[in-house]
Simulated scan of single mutants.
Amino acid sequence: MTRPRRAPPRPLPRWTLPATLLVLLGLAAWINEPIPGVTGREARAVAALPVAPAFRSGQRVLLLSPHPDDETLCCAGMLNRARAAGAEVFVTWITAGDGFEFDAALTERTLHPQGRALGERRVGEARAAAVVLGIPLDHQVVLGYPDGGLRFLNGVNFDRPYTSPRTGASATYLREAQTPGAPFTGEALEADLTRVLRRMQPDVILIPAHEDFHPDHHTLTLFAQRIAARLGLQGRLRYWVVHGGLEWPLPKGAHPALPLVPPPLARHLPWQRVPLDAEDLAVKTRAVNAYGTQTEVLGRFMRAFERRNELLSPSDTAR
């Protein structure tokens, strides 16, 4: 049997090589482009911000964290300062952080992850970060509501269970949750948060600002404000941001000598700065390192919060 003769390869167009070289040169220029940093003007603006009131001995400080790691990114340094000043520090994680599909695929080593394994692992990482921050086990609460689903609990699923597309769960599956088996409804979440606030009686409540871009973050704000108003605690709310605008904070990676500038989406808020010393930064770095599932994928973003200050706002509206 005679094999068919292959047709001779077609010559490449004359412009192929020059075009390829131009692309490679452009890519090289992009790779070597200096990473935008903090300008001198921005640094001076941060230095001019008022310093947040210091935490005091005997204060009860509660941070409501939408996902495991938010408490570290926004506030690990100030929580360390609060504890060093003699304040009692509490943290409550609202979700298990099980909604990051790519991360779940890496964790479960499958293209079709269920997500629950990631949730259990991230809660374990949150516990480890809390140990670094010196927060006792009895000051930690896990609620276990659906990552990526809080906005539904504040709407159509306020009184009927929401089913998470990532885990298939319509109720809390974590055995260590404050209310195991709690349905994924807004009513159940409000009841759980109300129990937390009544039991802990915090003097300071740290929550996301409305301007935080992540839906879980600004939805938690709505729940927390409603409950705080009902309990007469609205004057104790203080606000932070983690998702503050495209690429914020820049530059990526750890830059402990640089200031953290106010996020673009919330520049108008009355920000205060919390200066961090070397010990605060070392503690924050160790807490970030506790989140192995996250640093593997988002390490440069997470380390971009390792700066010489953190930011807090006493109000979620401009003065």
Rank of each mutant, 00 (worst) to 15 (best):
A45M: 04
L143Y: 07
P208K: 07
L17N: 00
L64M: 15
A209P: 07
R230L: 10
L276S: 09
G149W: 06
C75Q: 10
E310N: 06
N157P: 01
C75I: 05
F100M: 03
A318N: 04
R116Y: 06
L25D: 12
D103P: 00
W93R: 01
Y162R: 01
P275W: 13
V288W: 02
L193I: 13
Y145T: 10
R160H: 11
R300P: 14
A85P: 01
T317M: 00
L64T: 04
A128Y: 12
T293Q: 03
T2N: 12
P36I: 10
D277Q: 05
P9V: 08
T167N: 07
T92D: 06
G99R: 05
E71N: 03
V23L: 15
S65W: 12
P11Y: 07
R198G: 02
L250F: 09
F213L: 15
V261E: 05
F213D: 15
T107R: 01
M1Y: 10
W240R: 02
L220H: 00
V141D: 08
R195N: 08
A229Q: 15
G186N: 12
E120W: 07
L73V: 04
S164C: 08
D147A: 06
F305S: 00
E125I: 09
G244S: 09
V61H: 06
Q225E: 15
A43H: 01
L220R: 00
A287G: 05
L12K: 08
F184D: 10
A224N: 06
G37M: 06
A117W: 02
A126K: 07
L197I: 15
Q178W: 15
A126Y: 10
P202A: 07
P270T: 14
G134Q: 14
I207Y: 07
E88P: 00
V131I: 15
P183L: 15
V288S: 01
E190G: 02
L49K: 02
D147T: 03
V261P: 01
R14D: 11
L27G: 11
E120I: 07
P36V: 07
L12I: 03
P8I: 14
T179Q: 14
R230C: 02
G148T: 06
T194Q: 14
R267L: 15
G119Y: 06
I135C: 12
F100N: 01
L153V: 08
L21K: 00
P251C: 03
D192S: 13
P202N: 05
I35W: 09
V61E: 04
E247Q: 13
G77R: 03
P8E: 14
L137M: 11
R151S: 11
L17R: 09
Y162I: 09
P259W: 11
R83W: 10
